[in-house]
Design a protein around this nucleic acid. Structure first.
Lengths: 207, 207
DNA sequence: TCCAAATTTGACCGTCTGGTCATAAAGCAC
DNA sequence: GTGCTTTATGACCAGACGGTCAAATTTGGA
């Protein structure tokens, strides 16, 4: 088998190197963008040579694609967990907090995703128009139901979801700008943001 | 003089070509990123040859820098116009709408800015830490005053401003994603967003 | 220990790209 | 029209980059 990374039963080395490469690539792609990143950069960050990297992945696109595929699996998880049977206000508040924590704990993933969308989603367009849209449609119906039942204020569920994505991801994607204004205390920044957003959505959605 | 673009008294041709180049460059940089964009691409989009482009600008960085410099001049204008003497709720609502309209009318500029921040603001870091921060500090004090006087709900003014940036710019920067979910009717999308955001901030900030 | 498979890399290739330069083709004031 | 300046471009260059390949080294099961 030529392509080591795609084996069914990867060896210890394969698993370790593949992981090292993806970790390095995430870092580099997130800060440099797809075109800006170079294989030499990624290889060096992973502690291997460029040909060795290409022994595990067929191409630069392959590495990038693998990262995106993995990311998308988990990216929508917070929304998936929005429970139609739960208390509307609590559910939405919890969703906001889950999403904010993803920005705090996975900022590189957030920036990778943001970069991809900014450039027109050339590699994940089908996924966006497929599973992502389907999930949003589903949850929008749930929220619409809550509004109809008077459990939350009557708002457009789609724009509500967009606003949650925007305000939470902003803390990862525009990190540099926020740092520049607030100073660098990550801990404080995120707990302030959590307090602000929790209160904000609670007030805005109170029936 | 070698560099035609920086003359004090530009000729008719200089003005026209410089403008054509910047327009083309904005388009290309916004969709491809700095590294992704090529001078050939920009030159072709501007309808001239690459050497001719380099007759007007010293380098690729120069073109990019000029775009950013122009952008930043106007980017903060909506916030600057937040009037401390106005009605708090109305002022903030108007600010949100101004910012949203910038996303609608200047999406390429928004994406250019987003890309720059996403990559760590390598070229506008000083501006971010200087004038931008100063303006935000100033307006945050205004908002804090309003909250203290009970004219709006007591919220962290910095995170309030961040949230406004996030939700409005989101409609330009994540345009592809929003299109994928809502369909492509720009007109409807933005007027819905305006209604949503106006109501949302009004409710959340009601004293 | 032995050996076949897996892993690693130095050297190399073709292409792309930012930028240069000599030269040619407008513009334009007189 | 003349002559000087501005504007425009084809040809070219050096470096960077994605990717290949043959050969060397390591790994791990029997």
């Amino acid at each position: 088998m030529t392509r080591a990374a795609s084996r069914k039963n990867p060896t210890r080395i394969q698993r370790a190197k593949t992981e090292a490469i993806l970790g390095a690539a995430l870092e580099v792609f997130a800060t440099e963008g797809f075109r800006g990143a170079t294989l030499d950069q990624i290889a060096e960050a992973a502690g291997i040579s460029k040909p060795n990297l290409l022994y595990y992945f067929a191409s630069k696109e392959d590495v990038h694609g693998m990262l995106l595929a993995r990311l998308l699996d988990t990216w929508l998880e917070p929304l998936r967990r929005l429970d139609p049977a739960g208390d509307p206000q609590a559910e939405i508040g919890a969703y906001v907090r889950r999403k904010l924590r993803m920005s705090r704990d996975y900022p590189r993933e957030s920036r990778l995703f943001a970069g991809e969308i900014l450039q027109g989603a050339p590699r994940i367009g089908t996924m966006i128009r497929g599973p992502l849209r389907a999930l949003v449609d589903e949850k929008a119906q749930v929220i619409r139901g809550w509004a109809r039942d008077g459990l939350i204020a009557p708002v457009d569920p789609y724009h509500l979801i967009f606003s949650i994505w925007a305000v939470t991801q902003h803390y990862a994607d525009f990190d540099v700008q926020i740092r520049a204004v607030l100073g660098s205390d990550d801990e404080a920044r995120f707990s302030e943001a959590e307090r602000f957003l929790t209160h904000f959505y609670a007030r805005a959605l109170a029936p």
